[in-house]
Every structure is written in structure tokens, then in C-alpha cells.
Amino acid sequence: MKVLTLAAQEVRVGLRNRWVLATTVVMAALALSLTLLGSAPTGTVKADPLAVVVVSLASLTIFLVPLIALLLSFDTIVGEQERGTLMLLLSYPVSRWQIVLGKGLGQVAILAIATVLGYGAAGIALWLKSGVAEAAWQAYAAMVLTSIMLGATFVAMGCLASVLVRERATAAGLAVGIWLFFVLLYDTALLGVLVADQGRIVGKSVLDALLLLNPADAYRLFNMTASESVSVYSGMAGPGDPAALPPLAYVGVLALWIAIPLAIAIAAFRRRAL
């Protein structure tokens, strides 16, 4: 109950400082833009417009949602400490793990509201059109759900960064570094390793394992391969299907990426001297 109370307070703060509104507007504007522009030529080529939008939105989500999640969470603890409210919060009958979990849950709720409303607006725009297959709607719903999970993984990492440092500016820099590493640098470095290795050491099984070490890659693989109607347009269908794991395995990987950083953040906060 205390965790839910803290989460609800975090959502109220998000509503008061316009975080929910700003995030929803940004996500809705970008999703609608991709929906209207990305599905425009599908009537000529007989492509499923929703499947095309799923591919486009999944690619956008990998860049946008982690950034929003880190902006929400990087000052979870260190921000409270700098404002002088952390000691007051700890004076209440609430455990340290409840503070971290409650605040993280509230930030995920803010992100979930923005994602459902923003991507829901794009879904409604496509629903008004015809020629959308039922399988594509299932893929769209799965994309929205896993987008929230992807955001939750970066909320957990943002909370961890906030616990490990003593200054808000340092936490902000660490959050930017996390975003750059997982969203941009990891895949670039992995590509460089593959080119240099030429298949001598890094085989398909090793590559699959390395991809799972990045939650953004697990998200991408799930949304590009879970649905046949989407995999056709993502270039990941056919005899050479690269999906090494069943779709639920990628969801499990995302769940681990939420649980492990959050558990480390809770353990570090328990040992932190104020």
C-alpha cells in the first residue's frame, strides 16, 4: 500500500508539472506523423498500413522512450536529496526499498499513460482507414506493451544512476551516457566487432547472446519478428529468419532488464549514508 501511495504521489507530481501532458503530446505528434506519412503509399503497393506503422513506431520508440524514461528518473533520489526532502521522506514509516520501488512505479505509470494515449491516437487514426489485418492489430498492441516495458528498463537504470551519485548534474550526465551507450554506441561497437572478426569467433549464437545484453535490441527483435505480418516489412521474414528465441523470451529479457537494475538500486540505497 505504501508503494502505491508513493507511486500515486509521483503521478500527481507529473501531472502538476506537466510531464504527463508534454510527454503525451510529443509521442502523439510523432506517432501521428509516422502514421499519416508512413501509411500513405500503402494503398498503391497493397501493404498493410498498420504493419508498416508498427515497424516505423518501433524504430522511433528505441530512440524516444528511453530518453523520456531517463529524463523522468535520473533525479529520483539525488534530486530529493538536493531539495532537502529526502530526510523528511525517510522520517515517515516507509522503507528505503518502498521509496525506490514506489517512485519507479509512478514514473513507469507516467510513461505508460503517455504511451497509451500517444500511440492510441495513432491507432485510432489508422482504425478509421480500411485494409488493416487483425494480426497487425495484435502486433500493434504488443508493440505498445513492450514500449512501456522498454521505458521501464530505462526508468530502472535511471533510478540506479540516481542512487549511485551525490549530485543531480552527475546523475544527468550519467543518464545521457546510459542513453548514448544502449541506443547508439552498443550496436555500432557490435557491428565493428563483427566486421573485424569476419565470423571467426563471433558466431550466430554468440551474436544472439550479445544482442540480449541490450534491452533496446531485445525490444527491436521482438517487434520485428513476433508477428509475420510485421516481419515481412521489417526485412526479417523468410528462410533466413534471424529470430533465435521465441517472442516470449524477448519479453522475459526485458522483464529481467527491469528487475535487475531496480534490485541493485534498492540494495545500493539501503547502504547509502545520508
Results as ranks from 00 to 15, higher is better:
residue 128 L to A: 15
residue 153 T to F: 02
residue 118 G to W: 00
residue 159 C to W: 00
residue 178 I to S: 04
residue 117 L to G: 09
residue 143 M to N: 11
residue 152 A to W: 09
residue 159 C to H: 03
residue 133 A to T: 14
residue 125 A to T: 04
residue 172 A to T: 02
residue 130 S to V: 09
residue 128 L to F: 15
residue 103 K to L: 04
residue 183 V to K: 01
residue 177 G to C: 14
residue 161 A to W: 10
residue 139 A to D: 09
residue 170 T to V: 14
residue 124 I to D: 06
residue 158 G to P: 13
residue 147 S to N: 06
residue 123 G to R: 01
residue 131 G to H: 08
residue 138 Q to P: 00
residue 125 A to R: 03
residue 139 A to T: 08
residue 141 A to I: 15
residue 132 V to H: 02
residue 135 A to W: 04
residue 173 G to M: 06
residue 137 W to A: 14
residue 134 E to N: 12
residue 182 F to D: 02
residue 177 G to Q: 11
residue 114 A to S: 15
residue 123 G to Q: 04
residue 128 L to D: 02
residue 151 G to W: 02
residue 120 G to E: 09
residue 123 G to M: 07
residue 149 M to K: 02
residue 119 Y to R: 05
residue 129 K to Y: 06
residue 116 V to G: 06
residue 164 L to P: 01
residue 147 S to M: 11
residue 176 V to F: 12
residue 162 S to E: 03
residue 103 K to Q: 09
residue 169 A to H: 10
residue 171 A to K: 07
residue 110 I to M: 14
residue 132 V to K: 00
residue 148 I to S: 01
residue 107 Q to E: 15
residue 113 I to V: 12
residue 138 Q to Y: 08
residue 182 F to L: 07
residue 180 L to S: 07
residue 170 T to E: 09
residue 154 F to T: 06
residue 172 A to H: 08
residue 147 S to R: 09
residue 122 A to Y: 04
residue 170 T to P: 00
residue 126 L to I: 10
residue 136 A to H: 05
residue 150 L to N: 07
residue 157 M to P: 07
residue 179 W to Y: 11
residue 135 A to M: 03
residue 120 G to H: 12
residue 174 L to T: 11
residue 183 V to D: 00
residue 125 A to G: 01
residue 108 V to R: 07
residue 109 A to Q: 11
residue 103 K to W: 11
residue 137 W to T: 14
residue 127 W to S: 07
residue 182 F to I: 00
residue 129 K to C: 02
residue 174 L to P: 00
residue 153 T to S: 14
residue 139 A to K: 05
residue 109 A to G: 09
residue 179 W to D: 01
residue 179 W to V: 02
residue 177 G to Y: 09
residue 183 V to T: 08
residue 169 A to W: 04
residue 133 A to I: 11
residue 121 A to W: 03
residue 181 F to W: 04
residue 105 L to C: 12
residue 119 Y to W: 10
residue 155 V to G: 11
residue 181 F to T: 07
residue 112 A to W: 03
residue 112 A to N: 07
residue 174 L to Y: 06
residue 143 M to E: 01
residue 183 V to W: 00
residue 124 I to L: 15
residue 113 I to Y: 12
residue 130 S to M: 05
residue 120 G to I: 10
residue 141 A to P: 03
residue 146 T to D: 00
residue 148 I to Y: 00
residue 150 L to I: 03
residue 124 I to Y: 13
residue 114 A to G: 03
residue 165 V to R: 03
residue 112 A to V: 07
residue 143 M to I: 04
residue 161 A to I: 08
residue 174 L to M: 10
residue 117 L to M: 13
residue 140 Y to S: 11
